[in-house]
Amino acid sequence: MKKVEAIIRPEKFQSLREKLEEVGINGLTVSEVAGCGQQKGEQGLFRGQSFEIKLVPKVKVEMVVEAEHVDEIIKIVQSTCSTNQIGDGKIFVYSVEDAVRIRTGEAGLQAIL
């Protein structure tokens, strides 16, 4: 099992969710996050005063999937969320040792299917 974590632009989330559902990926954890990287924040304007926003709002989408689906998911995230601009986000892939469904006690792949 692998955990795929994508940090994306908030406006791209709905289309990503639809594309993932089309290929049968329904189990997601979604968090509103903020961060900065090469984008280094943005300039804001409030009542005529300019200020710097150091952390940019993003959405973190996490899913635990069978290892053979990882390449397909990465392609979907890239094709759906890319604007070819700095700040499109990142994808991280982690190995998952085990998963347990709390309600039934099922473990491993049975817990995530």
Rank of each mutant, 00 (worst) to 15 (best):
Gln39Cys: 05
Gln39Leu: 06
Gln39Ala: 15
Gln39Ser: 14
Gln39Thr: 07
Lys40Phe: 14
Lys40Glu: 12
Lys40Asn: 13
Lys40Met: 13
Lys40Gly: 13
Gly41Asp: 13
Glu42Met: 10
Glu42Asp: 07
Glu42His: 03
Gln43Met: 09
Gln43Trp: 07
Gln43Ile: 07
Gln43Gly: 03
Gly44Lys: 14
Gly44Trp: 10
Gly44Ile: 02
Leu45Val: 11
Leu45Thr: 01
Phe46Cys: 02
Phe46Pro: 00
Arg47Leu: 00
Arg47Ser: 00
Arg47Asp: 00
Gln49Gly: 01
Gln49Ala: 02
Gln49Phe: 02
Gln49Ile: 12
Gln49Asp: 11
Gln49Tyr: 07
Ser50Phe: 04
Phe51Lys: 04
Phe51Gly: 01
Glu52Thr: 14
Glu52Lys: 12
Ile53Pro: 06
Ile53Gly: 02
Ile53Thr: 01
Lys54Phe: 04
Lys54Met: 00
Lys54Glu: 15
Leu55Ala: 08
Leu55Trp: 08
Leu55Met: 15
Leu55Val: 06
Val56Trp: 14
Val56Ser: 03
Val56Pro: 04
Val56Met: 08
Pro57Val: 04
Pro57Arg: 04
Pro57Tyr: 10
Lys58Gly: 07
Lys58Glu: 02
Lys58Met: 05
Lys58Phe: 11
Lys58His: 10
Val59Tyr: 07
Val59Lys: 11
Val59Trp: 05
Lys60Val: 06
Lys60Arg: 15
Lys60Asn: 15
Lys60Pro: 01
Lys60Trp: 09
Val61Ile: 14
Val61Lys: 05
Val61Trp: 07
Val61Arg: 08
Glu62Cys: 01
Glu62Met: 12
Glu62His: 01
Glu62Phe: 02
Met63Ala: 12
Met63Gly: 12
Met63Leu: 15
Met63Val: 14
Val64Tyr: 03
Val64Gln: 03
Val64Glu: 13
Val65Asp: 09
Val65Lys: 15
Val65Phe: 03
Val65Arg: 02
Val65Tyr: 14
Glu66Thr: 14
Glu66Cys: 10
Glu66Gly: 09
Glu66Arg: 13
Glu66Ser: 12
Glu66Asn: 08
Ala67Gly: 10
Ala67Leu: 13
Ala67Gln: 11
Glu68Tyr: 07
Glu68Met: 06
His69Gln: 10
His69Ile: 08
His69Phe: 13
His69Tyr: 15
His69Met: 12
Val70Ser: 08
Asp71Leu: 13
Asp71Cys: 07
Glu72Ala: 12
Glu72Ile: 08
Glu72Phe: 08
Glu72Met: 14
Glu72Val: 08
Glu72Ser: 08
Ile73Gln: 01
Ile73Gly: 03
Ile73Phe: 09
Ile73Lys: 03
Ile74Trp: 12
Ile74Phe: 02
Ile74Thr: 11
Ile74Met: 15
Ile74Lys: 15
Lys75Thr: 12
Lys75Ala: 07
Lys75Ile: 09
Lys75Tyr: 10
Lys75Val: 04
Ile76Met: 09
Ile76Asn: 05
Ile76Trp: 07
Ile76Ser: 10
Val77Tyr: 08
Val77Arg: 06
